[in-house]
C-alpha cells in the first residue's frame, strides 16, 4: 500500500485551536447551544415498564468534534444511542420528542434511513458478521449499490464496475486499519479488538458525516486501545463528527473535545473533559451509582480512583452483557 493511502486527509479540525474555538465562548451547561450543531435532540423519553431509562430535554452535538457521552452503568447511554439511531422508539413519540441530524428531522425515520442520511453507528457487542469474510463485511457497508437491486443483481454488467470501485475503497480502509492481510478470512476468526476495528471500517465505507461508536474500547486489549483512540482522532482530523459512548472517564480525557454526562437517564453535565470531571454533579452521579465505594473527598479525581471505578463498572457490565447474551434471541 502506498503512503498516501494510509495517511488520512487533514481537515480543519486537526488544529487544536480551531477545536478550542468551538468549545468555548458559551456557558457549558447541560443542553448548551453549540456554534454549529450537527445533531439536535429535544425531549426524548424512553420508559421500560415503570422505569425511566432516558429522559433528555435537550442535547446538541458540535460538528467536527469528538464528543464523548459518559455516565455510570445504567445511565441510559446505549438506550439513548438506540433511540436517536432509530433502533428503539421513544415512549414520548409524537409528544414533543424531536431530533434532527444535519438539518433533517429524523425522529420518525427508520434505522436504515438514519444510516443513509450520514449517521452511522457501531454496537457495544460487536456485530461483525462472523460467518462472512472480512471483505464481504466491508462491501456491505457501501451505499447505493446497483447490485443490491433484485433485478439488476442477476446481470453482472450493471454492477461489476461499481463493485470493483467499492472493493478498492474497502482495501484502502482495511489497509488503514491494518486488516488487509485478513481480507479473505472469516470475520469470526478475528480477535475482539480487530472486530471493533472492522466494524468501524465497515461503517466508514458509507462515507458518513457522523460516526457513533458504542463503547469502542470495551473488551479491547490495552495495546489496541491506543491504536483505536488514534483512529478516532484521525477521523476527526479528516472532518468527521464523532460521538462515542464510554463509561470510563479516564479513557475519555485524552481524546474527547467535549464531554456530555448522563446519569439515571438525564443529562447532568457538559463541558471539556477536565471541567466535567470536577463537576460535583458528575461526582454525585458516579458516586450515586456506587454507594459502597468510599473514595474520600478528592480521591475521586485521581486517576487510580477512576480506574478502580471503571474496573468495577466494567465488571458489572460484563455480568450484564452475559445476561443479555444468555437471554437468547432478542
Amino acid at each position: 500500500m502506498s503512503d498516501h493511502m494510509t495517511q488520512p486527509a487533514v481537515g480543519a479540525m486537526a488544529d487544536p485551536a480551531a477545536r478550542l474555538a468551538l468549545t468555548s465562548g458559551f456557558e457549558a451547561t447541560p443542553g448548551a447551544t453549540k456554534p454549529d450543531a450537527i445533531l439536535r435532540v429535544d425531549n426524548i423519553v424512553r420508559q421500560f415498564g415503570g422505569m425511566t431509562a432516558v429522559d433528555v430535554q435537550h442535547l446538541e452535538v458540535q460538528r467536527g468534534l469528538i464528543t464523548a457521552l459518559i455516565g455510570p452503568n445504567g445511565a441510559g447511554k446505549t438506550t439513548f444511542f438506540n433511540l436517536i439511531t432509530g433502533f428503539d422508539k421513544p415512549t414520548t413519540a409524537g409528544k414533543g420528542a424531536h431530533w434532527e441530524f444535519d438539518g433533517r428531522t429524523i425522529d420518525k425515520t427508520s434505522a436504515s434511513s438514519v444510516a443513509r442520511s450520514g449517521m452511522v453507528r457501531t454496537f457495544q457487542l460487536t456485530k461483525a458478521l462472523s460467518a462472512m469474510t472480512v471483505i464481504d463485511n466491508m462491501m456491505l457497508g457501501a451505499q447505493d449499490q446497483a447490485g443490491e437491486n433484485l433485478f439488476k443483481s442477476m446481470f453482472r454488467g450493471t454492477w461489476g464496475k461499481q463493485e470493483k470501485e467499492n472493493e478498492a475503497k474497502a482495501d484502502e480502509l482495511l489497509a488503514r486499519f491494518k486488516l488487509l492481510e485478513k481480507k479473505h478470512d472469516y470475520a469470526g476468526s478475528l480477535s475482539g479488538g480487530q472486530r471493533k476495528l472492522l466494524e468501524m471500517a465497515r461503517a466508514l465505507m458509507s462515507d458518513p458525516k457522523m460516526i457513533m461508536l458504542d463503547e469502542p474500547m470495551a473488551g479491547v486489549n490495552p495495546a489496541l486501545t491506543q491504536s483505536l483512540l488514534g483512529h478516532i482522532q484521525n477521523l476527526r482530523d479528516e472532518g468527521m463528527t464523532v460521538l462515542f459512548v464510554e463509561h470510563d472517564m479516564h479513557v475519555v480525557r485524552h481524546i474527547s473535545d467535549w464531554v456530555a454526562v448522563m446519569a439515571e437517564g438525564r443529562l447532568v453535565a457538559e463541558g471539556s473533559a477536565d471541567t466535567v470531571m470536577s463537576d460535583p454533579a458528575v461526582i454525585d452521579a458516579y458516586l450515586g451509582a456506587h454507594h459502597d465505594t468510599d473514595l474520600g473527598d478528592d480521591a475521586l479525581l485521581t486517576d487510580e480512583a477512576l480506574e478502580e471505578l471503571a474496573e468495577e463498572v466494567a465488571a458489572e457490565d460484563a455480568v450484564r452483557q452475559a445476561e443479555e447474551e444468555a437471554e437468547g434471541p432478542k
Partner: peptide, 16 residues
Amino acid sequence: RGIREDEDAVRSLGKN
C-alpha cells in the same frame, strides 16, 4: 447472508 447473520448490523449500514 448479512441479514441471516445479524439484521441489526445490516440495518445500521443503511440497508432496508
